[in-house]
Amino acid sequence: MTAKASRPSEEMLHAYVDGLLGGQEQGVVERFLAENPSEAIRIEAYRRQNAAFRVLADAVDSRPFAMPEFQARRQWLPRALRAAAVVALVLLGVGGGWWLRGLEYTERVGWSDLAEQAAVAHQTYVPEVLHPVEVSGDQEKHLVTWLSKRLGNPVRAPSLRALGYDLVGGRLLPSSSGPAAQFMYQNARMNRITLYVLSSESGREETAFRFVRNGPVGVFYWISDTLDYALAGELERERLLEVATAIYKQLHNL
């Protein structure tokens, strides 16, 4: 019988199975296995497992596979238009930030109706643990279709993943001027922000960003031709502006 001291470690035996040993160590293992038939059977079984996995892997790799068609839901613009948009952005950037004029914001002491309702909705649903949203973000298509129908205008849930925020979902809300929508986003630190959307009253042309703060909740809001938006979050103004700018750019295909 082989002395105990010559028994290779279990690590070494498995490294042998995986072909990771150098010549000298391999020799040690092979001598040990030659002297220990029961261990040799066990190690041979492990080697066969690996061999079987490889047969399987080769068979699978040679079999054709059809990738499922995913809906490109984060793709707002056709390819050509997107290229044009990039060119436009570069040109505008060269233009010394002229374009940013449209994103200027002013600080206000009072609350507009829009911002106030957004802030109230934010404070109502953000602390919610069990039911933060009515329709969760994994049913985004359904959510957006439903809210668009109720608001009477096509709404979209912008993707904020680049800023670290994932869509939790959304809900329909009552407001003083008809149905409103709220989209909720959350980052890895469980910080939540909400985007409040309302159908615009006709005849308003104000597009500037405006900012109000009430206690911890800051709200950036702006008005487009069909919808009014208000982004609420317990964030510093600069950070909230960054998010609002990203949303603005996405929603207006900039």
Binding site: V60, R63, F65, M67, P68, D138, R161, D166
Partner: peptide
């Protein structure tokens, strides 16, 4: 093999739907 590939398809679809849960 057909069903194994079905499983992969289902997995990819679920991953796609749940992509908001995947933290970069």
């Amino acid at each position: 093999p057909e069903r194994a590939d079905d499983l992969v398809q289902d997995c990819l679809e679920r991953a796609w739907r749940k992509s908001h849960l995947w933290v970069r």
